[in-house]
Amino acid sequence: MTNITKEKVCLIGSGNWGSAIAKIVGRNVTKHSAYDSEVRMWVFEEIVEGQRLTDIINSRHENVKYLPGIQLPENVVAVPQLLDAVKDATLLIFVIPHQFVKGVCEQLKGNIHPEARAISLIKGVDISKGGLHLISDLIKDHLEIDVSVLMGANIASEVAEENFCESTIGCTNRQNGEAFRKVLNSPYFRVAIVDDVAGVELCGALKNVVAIGAGLVDGLKMGENTKAAIIRIGLMEMKKFSQTFYKGVRDETYFESCGVADVITTCFGGRNRRVAEAHVTTGKSFEVLEQEMLNGQKLQGTLTALEVHHILKAKHMVVDFPFFTTVYRICYEGRPARAIVDDI
């Protein structure tokens, strides 16, 4: 990138995962002379404790709403206006709920650095154009830039607490993948690179559907044998779905952190598992539980199950994916939780 004097990083998003990543990025940019030391983080402005959230972050260096108790580096600057945040940025890190990507990209179009590249940490798929599209492709098509992805067994709070874990970058341009690895890799957050964007990204999206199934089993108190079976069946459908709709998805990708490791951690510790368990124990809808339990965060597993079902129905393949279909029917058609074992 001959016209770039220094790489400048911007985080687009500031939830618990975005804030955990901001802690890593803020530290790493100060270690490499090729990177500008300021990291801007776009924050959707909210009033918290009577103050603007951006003011709190910039004065206390803590995202008190989404990642309380974790200190962010002082060079991470919260910015409430999206276009101000991305100004002059060459490395864009997207970490927002996937249903908001299109609107954000519409604002960014024509307003980013001419040599900007992006990486998506977003879990989900897009079906708005009548077919299955990766979120990375949505960003790439809107902004006409190269887009890598990062997925892995990464519960935000544990990453923020610096517990050792791994993650996986999927890229098509190795140089860009390495540029992002430099700002994301750390002793406690070990990042590998593979050239399988679709495989890495679909793992990150589909594992949330599997976690819904695991949480239902927990709520039903069926035990570890049943949960292990559900995880295995779900993982097999993840692989089958990915390789059915995207050529070139590699078997080996499922043994990276983005694959089996992410499925395991999400099925034992993630928000989708927790809410699905509560659905069984309380009888409340997923929509109500999202509002009650997630402090403004979004439940990705149910939405992804809906989107996957639309694709399978359009392709007349519903019966070929009994696990995904059953999760959808429990979430949206009132099937009892027990169907997670009875119907697959």
Score class of each variant (00 low, 15 high):
157 S>V: 11
157 S>W: 11
157 S>H: 11
158 E>P: 01
158 E>R: 12
159 V>H: 01
159 V>C: 03
159 V>E: 04
159 V>P: 00
160 A>P: 05
161 E>Q: 15
161 E>N: 12
162 E>T: 12
162 E>D: 14
163 N>T: 15
163 N>M: 14
163 N>W: 13
163 N>G: 03
163 N>H: 15
164 F>H: 08
164 F>R: 05
164 F>Q: 07
164 F>P: 04
165 C>E: 06
165 C>F: 04
165 C>S: 13
166 E>D: 10
166 E>G: 05
166 E>T: 14
166 E>I: 10
166 E>C: 06
166 E>H: 03
167 S>H: 01
167 S>C: 10
167 S>P: 09
167 S>G: 15
168 T>H: 01
168 T>N: 05
168 T>F: 00
168 T>Q: 02
168 T>L: 00
169 I>N: 04
169 I>G: 04
170 G>C: 07
170 G>H: 03
171 C>L: 05
171 C>H: 09
171 C>F: 06
172 T>F: 12
172 T>V: 11
173 N>F: 11
173 N>I: 15
173 N>C: 14
173 N>H: 14
173 N>P: 11
174 R>F: 06
174 R>W: 06
175 Q>L: 14
175 Q>R: 15
175 Q>A: 15
176 N>W: 12
176 N>Y: 14
176 N>C: 12
177 G>P: 08
177 G>F: 03
177 G>N: 09
177 G>I: 08
178 E>R: 12
178 E>F: 05
178 E>M: 12
179 A>V: 11
179 A>S: 12
180 F>K: 06
180 F>D: 06
180 F>W: 07
181 R>L: 10
182 K>V: 10
182 K>I: 08
183 V>N: 07
183 V>S: 07
184 L>T: 06
185 N>K: 09
185 N>P: 03
185 N>M: 01
185 N>L: 01
185 N>C: 06
186 S>T: 05
186 S>G: 13
186 S>P: 08
186 S>K: 10
186 S>N: 11
187 P>Y: 03
187 P>W: 01
187 P>L: 05
188 Y>P: 05
188 Y>T: 15
188 Y>W: 12
188 Y>A: 14
188 Y>C: 13
189 F>H: 13
189 F>P: 07
189 F>N: 12
189 F>M: 11
190 R>S: 10
190 R>H: 12
191 V>F: 01
191 V>L: 01
191 V>W: 01
192 A>P: 05
192 A>Q: 12
192 A>H: 06
192 A>N: 13
192 A>W: 00
192 A>Y: 03
192 A>T: 14
192 A>L: 00
193 I>Y: 02
193 I>H: 02
193 I>F: 03
193 I>R: 01
193 I>K: 00
193 I>S: 03
194 V>M: 03
194 V>W: 01
194 V>A: 05
195 D>R: 05
195 D>V: 02
195 D>C: 10
195 D>H: 11
195 D>M: 11
196 D>E: 09
197 V>G: 09
197 V>Y: 06
197 V>T: 11
197 V>S: 08
197 V>F: 05
198 A>R: 04
198 A>F: 07
198 A>E: 11
198 A>Q: 09
198 A>H: 05
